[in-house]
């Protein structure tokens, strides 16, 4: 018993090349720009000019460091909805507002039905859904469904906004259901992988790993021990010590 359609033959999605992403945030902002006047309600922002500015975004780029005592590699890491085949965000939705398109596998929110309960965001392991702070409906990557089939846009531009704008071409769009598609081949060649496979969501989007043998950082210090004994706490502390506020 599930509300997911039978797996579609066409599985549209993104392939993100971590070997090339420089973390420029172009895809993040262009996505916001396209989508704020596009599908569904605007991607609104609260406190745009004061403290705690807070808006809805469909795509965010993190940065991580991978390291051992000799090597270190900074990896910029874009993340948007992965249009999972077994999308828990769809089955958990009580209203049917969240759905996966039978035709191409795109996971969408029907904002007219959404009650803003937030459950789908809770069920998504990737943090791909954000509640709009003003419109109070759930927002997520639409795979630019209003671009990729749009007759008002020149054919070569019928790709997601983030793909079209990415200066390094680190983002690829295509049919991952077709083993002969460009994206499927890339995935095969480069060892494209799933995020959090153990969550069994079967994401359609794939990530291509950083390729280079990582940079030697020799004669710096033994990072591993230091990082461990130091155990940095992460950003939340930096970003305002939430816990302290709680007392």
């Amino acid at each position: 018993m599930t509300s997911l359609p039978d797996p579609s033959a066409i599985k549209l999605g993104l392939v993100i090349d971590l070997d090339i992403c420089v973390g420029c945030q172009a895809c993040v902002v262009n996505c916001k720009e396209w989508n704020t006047s596009g599908y569904g309600a605007p991607l609104s922002d609260e406190n745009p000019y004061s403290s705690n500015p807070n808006g809805a975004w469909l795509n965010r780029v993190h940065a991580y460091e991978e390291f051992n005592s000799e090597k270190v590699k900074t990896v910029h890491f874009p993340k948007s909805c992965l249009h999972c085949e077994d999308a828990p965000c769809v089955t958990v939705c009580p209203t049917g507002a969240s759905y996966k398109r039978a035709e191409d596998g795109i996971v969408l929110v029907n904002e007219d039905w959404c009650i803003g309960c937030g459950l789908c965001a809770w069920s998504c392991p990737y943090g791909a859904r954000e509640m709009d702070p003003v419109e109070n409906v759930m927002k997520k990557c639409t795979l630019c469904v209003d671009r990729i089939y749009n007759d008002n846009i020149p054919e070569e531009d019928r790709v997601p906004a983030c793909v079209r704008t990415c200066p390094t071409s680190a983002r690829h769009f295509g049919d991952l259901g077709d083993p002969n598609s460009k994206v499927s081949k890339l995935v095969a060649e480069r060892g494209g992988y799933d995020l959090l496979p153990e969550q069994q969501t079967k994401p359609v989007n794939k990530y291509l790993p950083p390729q280079s043998s990582c940079e030697s950082n020799e004669d710096q210090f033994s990072l591993l021990e230091m990082a461990e004994s130091n155990s940095p706490k992460g950003f939340w502390e930096w970003m305002d010590n939430t816990l302290e506020r709680l007392g």
């Binding site: 704020t36 006047s37 596009g38 599908y39 569904g40 309600a41 605007p42 609104s44 922002d45 609260e46 406190n47 745009p48 000019y49 004061s50 808006g55 003003v134 419109e135 209003d146």
Partner: peptide, 17 residues
């Protein structure tokens, strides 16, 4: 004066709808 909330494009999202 800076607005407290931004909903850029609201008129068009309604038209799209």
């Amino acid at each position: 004066d800076p607005p407290k909330k931004l909903r850029y494009g609201i008129e068009w999202t309604k038209q799209n709808k």
